[in-house]
Design a protein around this nucleic acid. Structure first.
Length: 704
DNA sequence: GCTTGCAGCCTCTAGACAGCATGTC
DNA sequence: CTAGAGGCTGCAAGC
C-alpha cells in the first residue's frame, strides 16, 4: 500500500503539468500498482479494484501515454450513457495537450460530431459494437481500448456485447477495468493481459448486519456492536447516522418500498428534518421540472423539503438529476433507492443500508432469489465520501441471528462470484456472428470460427453455436455464400439497425404473410419482438386488454402461459403508444397505465427505434403494403402527435404541445409560422415565438 | 344497526443499451 | 425451487 509522488514517476512533463492542475500530487496504491505493471509502457492490463479507487485516472494515464508515444486513437468504453458523459468531462482536461475528445452514445453525439476528427472517443459498449458493424474508416485507426466496468461481462443481457467488443479489442491493445472479481487470473489470461488487483479503497469500509435484539436493534460489525432503539431497523439506523452528521443511502428491492420507506423515514425524523431555505429551493426546482408527471413531483416535493427523497427508474430523468445533485451538495440527507443507484455515476454516502438481500425473479414465479455478492459489493461500495467521511459503513438488514450469520459469511466475508461468458445462447451468439460478418464484409467459415474460439465460452460450446448459427442465419436469409460468407441486403440492414436477428425474423415472418392492419396491430407486433419494451400487466388489466384490441393483430393469441403474458404485455405497450400518438395528455397516460414518466420515456425511445427498424426491414424486403404505415407511425411515435402535426414538429423547438396550439389556431405548416410571426408570438410567448419563427425559416431554407 | 379491528387472502414486484443524420477540403 | 409489503374482504366483537 504505497502512494507515489507523481514527480518520482517516469512521466512526460506535459502529463505531470496537467495532473498538478487537476490537483493530483501523488498516485494512490492502485494507480501505483498499475504503473509498476507497465501501464505507461503500453502493457495490457486488467485492473480489478473496488469502486471509487481511482481507476479512471489509470485509464487517463494509459490513454495519454499511448497517444503520446504511438499516436493513433483511443476509445474509452463504459456500459452506461451517464458514465460516458462523466468520463468525457474528465478526459476533456487532456485537450490541453492537443488531443481532441469526443463522445458518442445513443442519445448524444459530440456537437460537431465527425468522429474521425477526435483522438479520444468515449462511448458505450453497444454503440461501439454498432459502429464496428458500419466499420467507419476512423475505427481502424483506434488501437487502444479502455474497457471500463468490465464486470458487466457477467450481465445476462448486456454481457454478450461486452464480450463481443472485448474480442475485437483483444486484437488491438486494451486496458480493462473492473470491480473486484474472483477469477481475475482467468479473465486476464483470456484478455492476454497482466492482472493488477487490490482491495484498496480511498475511504475504508466497514460492513455489518442489523438484527433485531431483545429491546433494540444490534448493528454488528466485525469488531464492534452498536445498540440502537426503534421500531424499524432501517429507520433506526438512518436516524443514528443522521444524528452523527452523515448522509444515508438506503436500497430497497421495489419502487413501492423505496417510496414508502422514504415516507416513513421522513415522518420519523422530527427535528432532523426541518425544511431549510436550501431544501425549499430544491423543492421549487422539483415543482418546475418539465419532463415529470405531476403526481410524482408532488410526492417527491413533500419529502425533499424535509431532506429525504426516493429514487428509481420510474422517475423522469430531470427529477433524478435534481435529487442526485442535491444529495451530492449535501442538502438532501437520505435517498431511498432501487438498484438504479448501485451502478452508474458516483454518489457516495456515509452509510449504506441494504434493506433487502432478496429479489423477486420474474422468470420463476414465486421464487425470490438472493442478490449476487457482486451486486451487494456495488451497493456497499457507495459508502464513504472521500474528504467527508473517515470511514464508510454498509449494513444489511436481516431478520434473525441465524440469517445474520449466513449473510455475514456470504456477503461480507466471501469474494464476489466469478464472471463468465453470457454468449451461450442462440439470441446472443447469433447477434455476435451477425456483427462479425457485418464488419468483416466477407469471411470464411474458418475465420468466423476463429472469432468464436476467441470467446470465453468452452471450445466445444462455441463450436456448436457457430455451426448452428451459420445454418440458422443462412436458412433465414441473413447470410449467403459458400466459401465466403456475406450478408444479404436484409442481413446487412438488420446488422446496421442493431436489432436482434430474432426481432428481424418476427418482422419478416409476420409482415410477409399478413395484410395491412391498423396502427395497434403494428405497434403490437413491434412491441412483441425480443427487443420490444416490457411492461408489467396487472391481473385486472389482463382481462381488459384482451377484449380491447380494436382490429386483427398480426400475432395470434399464444396458448403457452408465458408467451400469452408477453403477448398481453406487448398489447399494453401498443395501447400506451397509441395513446401517445393520439395526443392523450401525459399525466392521463401515466395514471391510466400505472407507469412513471421515466417508464413512458423509455418505452417511447425503444418504440421509436423499433418502428424505424420495422419500416426499414419492410422496405428492404420490399413489402410495399406495410412500409408506408410503419414510416408514418415512426414519425408519430418520435413526437407523440397525430399525423396532421407532422409538418410542425419538424421545427426545432416545437413538440406535441406547441404544435397542437399552433395547429388549432390555423398555423399548420412551417410556412404558416413564418407568415404569421406575430400570431405565433402571441400564442407561445415573445421569446419562444421568435425562436420558433427563426427555426421555421431555417427549416424552409434547408428544404429548398 | 353501524363501526372498528384484525386475520387471512390476493396482488404485485429493478434497470437501461441500440438507429438516423449531422460536416468539409 | 427460498419473500414480503400493502390493499382488500369479510367476519366478529364492541357500542
Amino acid at each position: 500500500m504505497e502512494f507515489t509522488p507523481i514527480d518520482k514517476l517516469n512521466l512526460d512533463e506535459r502529463i505531470i503539468k496537467i495532473l498538478k492542475k487537476k490537483g493530483i500530487e501523488k498516485l494512490n496504491p492502485v494507480q501505483t500498482d498499475a504503473v509498476n505493471s507497465g501501464l505507461l509502457e503500453g502493457k495490457r492490463l486488467l485492473v480489478t479494484s473496488p469502486t471509487g479507487s481511482g481507476k479512471t485516472l489509470i485509464a487517463e494515464l494509459g490513454i495519454i501515454s499511448h497517444l503520446l508515444s504511438d499516436g493513433g486513437k483511443a476509445v474509452y468504453i463504459t456500459p452506461l450513457k451517464a458514465l460516458t458523459a462523466e468520463k468525457y468531462n474528465e478526459l476533456k482536461d487532456w485537450e490541453e495537450l492537443g488531443f481532441k475528445v469526443g463522445m458518442t452514445s445513443g442519445d448524444y453525439d459530440s456537437d460537431d460530431a465527425w468522429l474521425k476528427n477526435y483522438d479520444i472517443i468515449v462511448s458505450t459498449y453497444e454503440k461501439i459494437d454498432s459502429l464496428w458493424r458500419h466499420n467507419p474508416s476512423w475505427l481502424s485507426e483506434v488501437d487502444y481500448f479502455v474497457l471500463d466496468e468490465f464486470h458487466y461481462l457477467n450481465d445476462e443481457e448486456r454481457g454478450p456485447v461486452v464480450e463481443s467488443v472485448a474480442i475485437r479489442a483483444k486484437r488491438k491493445n486494451l486496458l480493462a477495468l473492473s470491480a473486484t472479481i474472483s477469477n481475475y487470473e482467468k479473465i486476464a489470461n483470456w484478455l492476454n493481459a497482466i492482472p493488477v488487483t487490490t482491495n484498496w479503497r480511498p475511504v475504508p469500509l466497514r460492513e455489518g448486519v442489523i438484527v433485531e435484539g431483545k429491546k433494540s436493534y444490534q448493528v454488528i460489525f466485525p469488531n464492534e456492536t452498536i445498540e440502537i432503539k426503534g421500531n424499524d431497523p432501517i429507520i433506526a439506523y438512518t436516524l443514528y447516522v443522521l444524528e452523527h452528521g452523515g448522509q444515508v443511502l438506503v436500497f430497497r428491492n421495489s419502487r413501492k418500498m423505496a417510496e414508502s420507506t422514504a415516507k416513513k423515514i421522513s415522518s420519523s425524523m422530527g427535528l432532523l428534518s426541518l425544511p431549510d431555505k436550501e431544501l425549499l429551493k430544491v423543492g421549487e426546482e422539483i415543482k418546475n421540472v418539465e419532463d415529470a408527471g405531476s403526481d410524482e413531483k408532488e410526492e417527491l416535493y413533500e419529502l425533499v423539503v424535509r431532506g429525504v427523497a426516493f429514487h428509481h427508474a420510474g422517475l423522469s430523468k430531470g427529477l433524478r438529476e435534481i435529487i442526485e445533485r442535491a444529495f451530492r451538495e449535501r442538502k438532501i440527507k437520505v435517498i431511498v433507492a432501487t438498484p438504479t443507484l448501485a451502478a452508474g455515476v458516483n454518489l457516495p454516502a456515509r452509510a449504506v443500508i441494504i434493506g433487502d438481500f432478496h429479489r423477486y425473479n420474474r422468470k420463476i414465479l414465486g421464487y425470490q432469489e438472493e442478490i449476487s455478492i457482486m451486486e451487494y459489493k456495488q451497493m456497499a461500495g457507495r459508502a464513504g465520501r472521500p474528504g467527508f467521511d473517515k470511514e464508510g459503513e454498509a449494513v444489511i438488514v436481516v431478520r434473525n441471528k441465524k440469517e445474520a450469520e449466513k449473510v455475514f459469511k456470504k456477503y461480507i466475508l466471501s469474494p464476489p462470484e466469478p464472471i463468465e461468458s453470457r454468449l451461450g445462447n442462440e439470441s446472443a451468439f447469433y447477434s455476435f456472428l451477425l456483427g462479425i460478418i457485418s464488419s468483416e464484409k466477407k469471411i470464411s467459415e474458418d475465420d468466423l470460427e476463429d472469432y468464436a474460439m476467441d470467446t470465453l465460452l468452452d471450445k466445444d460450446v462455441a463450436e456448436k453455436y457457430v455451426k448452428r448459427g451459420i445454418t440458422w442465419l443462412r436458412d433465414n436469409e441473413f447470410i449467403a455464400g459458400d466459401d465466403e460468407l456475406v450478408l444479404t441486403k436484409f442481413g446487412k440492414r438488420v446488422a446496421d439497425l442493431y436489432i436482434n436477428p430474432f426481432t428481424a425474423k418476427v418482422f419478416k415472418d409476420y409482415l410477409t404473410k399478413s395484410d395491412k392492419s391498423c396502427n395497434i396491430a403494428y405497434l403490437h407486433l413491434v412491441a412483441y419482438t425480443p427487443d420490444g419494451p416490457t411492461v408489467s400487466v396487472t391481473r385486472s388489466e389482463l382481462e381488459e386488454l384482451v377484449d380491447e384490441a380494436p382490429c386483427p393483430l398480426f400475432i395470434e393469441e399464444p396458448e403457452d402461459e408465458d408467451e400469452f403474458y408477453n403477448y398481453v404485455s406487448a398489447l399494453k405497450v401498443a395501447m400506451i403508444i397509441n395513446d401517445w400518438i393520439e395526443e392523450v395528455d401525459e399525466d392521463v397516460i401515466l395514471s391510466r397505465y400505472g407507469i412513471g414518466s421515466g417508464d413512458l420515456r423509455s418505452i417511447i425511445d425503444t418504440m421509436d427505434w423499433l418502428t424505424y427498424s420495422g419500416y426499414n426491414v419492410a422496405k428492404v424486403l420490399d413489402l410495399k403494403e406495410h412500409y408506408d404505415v410503419l414510416y408514418t407511425l415512426n414519425l408519430r411515435v418520435k413526437d407523440g402527435v397525430k399525423e396532421e402535426l407532422l409538418d410542425l414538429v419538424k421545427i426545432q423547438g416545437v413538440g406535441r404541445k406547441r404544435a397542437r396550439i399552433l395547429y388549432n389556431h390555423g398555423i399548420k405548416k412551417p410556412e404558416d409560422v413564418v407568415m404569421n410571426v406575430d400570431k405565433v408570438k402571441s400564442l407561445l410567448g415573445q421569446k419562444i415565438g421568435e425562436k420558433i419563427a427563426k427555426e421555421a425559416a431555417r427549416l424552409i431554407a434547408g428544404n429548398a
